[in-house]
Design a protein around this nucleic acid. Structure first.
Length: 478
RNA sequence: GCCCCCGUCGUCUAGCCAGGCCUAGGACACCGGCCUUUCACGCCGGCGACACGGGUUCGAAUCCCGUCGGGGGCACCA
């Protein structure tokens, strides 16, 4: 049974880099009929917050990632929140202590930091000296009496070379001398990541650990713990990280990078899902617009790249546009767009929004674009800019608008077809055509110089508003 | 500094493992054209890359070595 997990720490919004890791775990699980486990890594008391956990779950769901076990739905191997597993960890800490794989260390953080800096400055690997490895009972007692609370360190065997075959990176060998005895329980009693991740992955029967490349150098430490505790070692797969435009690890300073931000900016979850899946992975054929099902079917961990990819917002935008104009059904698209319309102060019925979406979906790439593109469908009292004023001051332009108004002022309805017919008549009567003919009308009707087809606009906003706007322009330039 | 990973158009990538089918294919962006009342959409075309240097070979983007470049890690964060 394939079991994978996504294990975020609830310290902020879900970052697209993490979302991509979650996504690949999800794809791997689904493709292989396995299970995805969501585990919340909240051992950092300082930074972890329950609100963040809720948002993480919300964002993951929004993206279309589902899990089989997790803190919200439970499961056979719970609890799935590390802060609720402390008793379990303690048991294994005791075991390591008893077997001599771990020991108490009374060194102060300040002096350690000092040593670290010194080592770095002298070009040595900054590692713990191991000086508390062989403390006598007497020495321990002395420290205790001074009120110093110890940490627990894992005793790293000298000179070992850890070897493992990463499913993505291939054969990896790392000498254990790169790091010293590392902390597995903090002074405050909380166990640390490198320890709990092993206990949890082992107890939750995780078969494949798929995570970001930044964890690659942690893997040897974890393998040591697997061995010390006698657990089976899972398969590892380290995903290349996602880069910003400057080719450094994607972070907040590269602009909006949280899934939440993309949601708020009017991106379709399906598009983000599709886009993220293509970052470091490629299907057999050259198609890029793929449904979730297609991606799951085609996904093969062997096709994941070794090299990192730059997060290309422009391409994401394009892809989102494809989803808006070609993939998401109009009804659904309108539902998603409704809060955006309202947010921009564009008030109307659902049916009206639907008509507007129909009219503008080809010309927007995110729901944010509704603000500009849909304005003419809602705003009657718009301003005329200098260019507009100049163009409408022209005599023929004025004449066109006037004639149009005369021709429709007694009508009750006006379809797009009828509008076009009327425009043709004006063309003949006034002997103006093309831009000279349409542009003044556009300005009178929208105050803008480009936008949706006017036939569509007039039909959607209705003849009364058309009359009103024409009148307004006539008065303004009269 | 030390360890590890990576290196095909500006970007995402196909090809690399099983060398010739590659005058290196696709997509985004960019430029030009067509369509069109305008913008957008759509369609057509263009620009543009095997990091460098050595080998191996009849033949290398593909195999080997080195150099350079980029990235990640080296916490009582995960």
């Amino acid at each position: 049974m394939i079991r994978v997990r996504f294990a975020p720490s609830p310290t902020g919004f879900l970052h697209v880099g993490n979302a991509r890791t979650a996504l690949f775990n999800y794809l791997f699980a689904k493709h292989n009929n396995g299970k995805l486990i969501l585990r919340v890594e909240d051992t950092d008391k300082e930074r972890s917050k329950k609100e963040y956990e809720d948002m993480l779950i919300e964002d993951l769901k929004w993206l279309g990632i589902e899990w089989d076990e997790g803190p919200d739905i439970g499961g056979e191997y719970g609890p799935y929140r590390q802060s609720e597993r402390l008793d379990i960890y303690n048991k294994y800490i005791q075991e390591l202590l008893e077997k001599g794989h771990a020991y108490y260390c009374y060194c102060l953080p300040e002096e350690l930091e000092e040593e670290r800096k010194k080592a770095l400055a002298e070009g040595r690997p900054p590692r713990y000296s191991g000086k508390c490895r062989h403390l006598t009972q007497e020495e321990k007692k002395q420290y205790e009496e001074k009120g110093i609370k110890p940490v627990v360190r894992f005793k790293v065997p000298d000179g070992r070379i850890i070897v493992f075959d990463d499913l993505i990176k291939g054969h990896i060998e790392i000498g254990v001398d790169e790091f010293g005895d590392f902390v597995i329980v903090r002074q405050d009693g909380m166990p640390t990541y490198n320890f709990v991740v092993v206990v949890d992955d082992a107890l939750m029967k995780i078969s494949h650990v798929i995570r970001g490349e930044d964890h690659l150098s942690n893997t040897p430490k974890q393998i040591l713990i697997y061995e010390a505790l006698g657990f089976d070692i899972p398969e590892f797969a380290h995903l290349p990280i996602i880069l910003g435009e400057d080719r450094s690890k994607l972070s907040k300073r590269h602009g909006a990078v949280s899934v939440r931000a993309f949601k708020d900016e009017g991106y379709m979850p399906e598009a983000l899902f599709n886009f993220l899946s293509l970052l470091g992975w490629h299907p057999k054929e050259d198609r890029e617009i793929l449904s979730k099902e297609e991606i799951i079917n085609e996904f093969d961990i062997k096709d994941i790249h070794k090299s990192p990819a730059v997060f290309d917002r422009t391409k994401l935008r394009w892809m989102n546009g494809v989803y808006i104009r070609e993939i998401i059904p109009l009804e659904e698209l309108t539902k998603r767009a409704e809060p955006f319309f309202k947010g921009f102060g564009y008030i109307g019925s659902f049916d009206y929004y639907k008509k507007v979406m129909q009219a503008i979906r080809d010309s927007i790439e995110t729901l944010m674009d509704i603000k500009e593109r849909a304005r003419p469908f809602f705003v009657d009292e718009f301003e005329f800019d200098d260019k507009a004023k100049e163009e409408l001051s022209n005599e023929t332009a004025y004449k066109v608008i006037q004639t149009l108004y005369e021709k429709i002022k007694d009508r009750d309805t006006l379809t797009g077809e009828e509008f076009k017919k009327i425009m043709k008549e004006i063309q003949k009567e006034l002997k103006v055509k093309g831009r000279q003919l349409y542009h003044p009308v556009r300005i009178a009707l929208t105050g803008e110089h480009s936008g949706v087809g006017l036939d569509i606009l007039v039909e959607v906003i209705g003849i009364e508003r058309v009359k009103k706007r024409l009148q307004r322009a006539l008065e303004y330039f009269g």
